[in-house]
Design a protein around this nucleic acid. Structure first.
Lengths: 211, 211
DNA sequence: GTATGATGTTATCAATGATAACATTCACAA
DNA sequence: TTGTGAATGTTATCATTGATAACATCATAC
């Protein structure tokens, strides 16, 4: 932490690399940084990053893991806030997902980068991702026990809400909507909330159709 | 077309490159081919591909464009089949989107590859993509005129259905579900249909809430 | 048959992730 | 204080890969 006069050692290179990478992703709107650029920007040699991450993918995985942890924390917070109202918790988790994507663009892009589709090399990342999914699943189960949902299975409902929120987030973040004149991110974010509410509302009505 | 004895010229390199790239994406489950590998596999030099595509991105864009065209054709087919039943057409287009992604994995991966988020360099690709969106939008409008939908705007409903289908397709294709034990693609595909029906069903009920 | 454009080849670059061998600094025990 | 090992950084140096230039070959129209 303390700065020495002669800084052969950077002192905090690992975090600095993460920060620089996140900044770059945020500004570029895509995962396109190079290790050499990060190193140059931080005033270290191009081999230095490899002292802290075994590969470029590992650096990306660290960002993604942090992202899942932050989202998991948001979900845990919601669980605490609505211990007896799973219906409300359900809605808020859906909205929170889209909001997280918009407000943490760089993390989101890392979390769903194709390079990390296979997470077997990064158990901690995998666990952090599973935590988020399980949290949502638990809320849906709780809704189910209170008969707040239709006859669809908990997994099916979880999958559906995850699909809407993830799909919307993906379209927003990757600029598919802007190309089609669906206005700004802010405008789309509002539509996002309403779209989510629409689906959630459908699920929250008693609707005893055949599964 | 005709094979000459000495084939200094490949004869159909452009299509061969597209096919080889698609095969590679299909097998790898991700866009990870290199131009050199494609060239080697086709028995040409590593510079040959550049006679047919100005860049690697351009090759990918050609695949994506073809994908959007095929999906657009499916949508046109549905329009023809249900000229007076926009509700049914709406449902089927939603399902068709997910099915397309599953049965044309390589095309789908190209269509939504981050490298092509900005389509300004490829107007034909942009147009092909817009065609698909506009087709869905038109169906939603038709539903609206028949009072089949709630008070949400046509764009909002289009965005919602697009989010569900795209989100589901993305999760399926990129293997996020397998990691969480949501079984095979086939199993997930069935859930997909039901999930889509769930959302569509909600939209198709008269539900005159405030927008 | 010959000129011309399309297509393919052979170098050759520059960028980039990665590694090896070596240098410096820090932390901590004696 | 000192000296030893681990952590961290540096300087070459690779191999891979997209891309380009200069040149070669073929096919077709005239």
């Amino acid at each position: 932490m303390r700065k020495t006069t002669k800084d052969y050692h950077h002192g905090n290179l690992r975090n600095a690399l993460l920060g620089a990478a996140i900044s770059h992703i945020e500004e570029a709107g895509e995962v396109s940084f190079t290790l050499r650029d990060l190193a140059k920007k931080l005033g270290v040699s191009s081999a230095a990053p490899f002292r802290h991450f075994p590969s470029k993918r590992a650096l990306l995985a660290a960002i993604a893991e942090s992202g899942y942890e932050q989202l998991g924390d948001v979900y845990a917070e919601l669980d605490s806030s609505f211990p007896n109202d799973p219906g409300e918790c359900f809605k808020r988790k859906g909205v929170a997902y889209v909001q997280f994507a918009i407000t943490h663009k760089a993390y989101y892009l890392a979390m769903y980068h194709p390079e990390l589709n296979d997470k077997s090399e990064f158990p901690a990342l995998k666990a952090a991702g599973a935590r988020v999914f399980v949290s949502m699943l638990a809320t849906v189960e709780a809704c189910r026990e209170k008969n707040l949902l239709s006859n669809f299975s908990a997994e099916q409902i979880t999958l559906t809400i995850w699909s809407v929120t993830h799909g919307l987030a993906d379209l927003l973040i990757n600029g598919q909507l802007a190309e089609l004149g669906i206005a700004s991110t802010e405008q789309a974010a509002i539509q996002a909330m309403e779209a989510v509410s629409m689906v959630v509302g459908a699920g929250l009505q008693k609707n005893p159709k055949q599964p």
